[in-house]
Design a protein around this nucleic acid. Structure first.
Lengths: 188, 188
DNA sequence: AAAGTATGTTACCTTTTGGTAACAAACAAG
DNA sequence: CTTGTTTGTTACCAAAAGGTAACATACTTT
């Protein structure tokens, strides 16, 4: 129960200030639990964060497998839509992506492996069913999947990017439509 | 002269550990200059960073205007190539882009305004000469210009992304080719 | 009832952070 | 010569960081 209170406090801090702000003192203050107990339950802050990431398992929550998959092209579009939705509605996920860019640890490595695995699976199936080059499909997928976290993180402090309102639905609708368009044009 | 030593030290720290690591103590240690002098020359760390950004003026250094601009499509491709090159070869620029995602201050605002202005100018000319919708062109440009900093930052700690070797020339060649390809397909 | 283990609190420690006061020397201008 | 400004050093301060020792309480287990 105390353990849960600590992890909940981590969640609160992450959503508000990001993973960078998670320290023993901050967590102790936010949870009302003594510092010493944090060290007893989790050995140090790193392992606390690992536990937080694992319990909120970011990539297991992303069950793209459940999407309707009639057409491959449509399936890919759906995946990107789900990806955008997740990042747009979850501050914690945005913070995770931001944190990744300046930190390295086992939890992040694991997430990357899962992401890589999932990505390859999708790219493989797209190639198989459309007959396109793997390298081309991989590059397109990378460009899109990389831009989405960047723009969603940026939107928190920069409302407009190249005239796109990235902090509003309208901007993301434009982005979604353009991703669809690229897919229609590229995977012809 | 002392001023230069301080700014140089900032550069060293930024390239190695990023803007987040620039503090009075760190700069004093790296430059061999007393803390007090840092406060005398620049009033605080924020203004020191502003000065550093302004002297290394990141967006004035990016003179895309000097590129050969026969065909618009070719011009756009050249710009993206230059953009990728800059980000790939300058650790400081990568660190700036990373820093931007978690900080807000006047210097960053200014950079964003310049970026926005330059972006709009290019997008305008592309639209004008190809007859494409502004919103579509803006969205494509945003997707690409957002993915490049993300992937280049990521490459420092994650060598492979969707099977692309983003920490090697080969991966970026693939990306460059695909950007060209997208342009040829989209700006038909 | 006694021993042992899990749970919690208080109080302390060191290091590093940003920031300043006070004093010393160098040098130009009256 | 002396006044004032620039340039610099030493030494200090308070706050916040990560981290631990020691003690108290409670709940099992034999």
């Amino acid at each position: 129960m105390t353990e849960k209170r600590i992890l909940d406090a981590v969640g609160t801090i992450v959503e508000r200030d990001g993973f960078e702000a998670v320290g023993v003192n901050a967590v102790a203050a936010a949870s009302g639990v003594s510092k010493v107990l944090i060290y007893r339950y989790f050995n140090n802050v790193d392992q606390l964060l690992v536990k937080y990431i694992e319990t909120n398992d970011f990539w297991l929550n992303a069950d793209f497998a459940s999407l309707p998959c009639s057409d491959v092209r449509e399936f890919a579009k759906q995946i990107f839509r789900a990806y955008i939705d997740m990042l747009r509605k979850s501050p914690a996920l945005r913070k995770l992506y931001r944190w990744e860019l300046s930190t390295q640890n086992p939890a992040i490595d694991r997430l990357r492996r899962m992401r890589e695995e999932m990505g390859m699976k999708i790219i493989d199936s797209v190639c198989q069913q459309t007959g396109h080059e793997r390298s081309r499909v991989a590059a397109v997928a990378s460009l899109i999947t990389a831009s989405v976290p960047y723009l969603s993180i940026l939107s928190e402090s920069c409302p407009v990017y190249n005239s796109l309102e990235i902090n509003a639905d309208s901007g993301w609708q434009q982005i979604t439509e353009t991703i669809d368009y690229i897919f229609d044009k590229i995977l012809d």
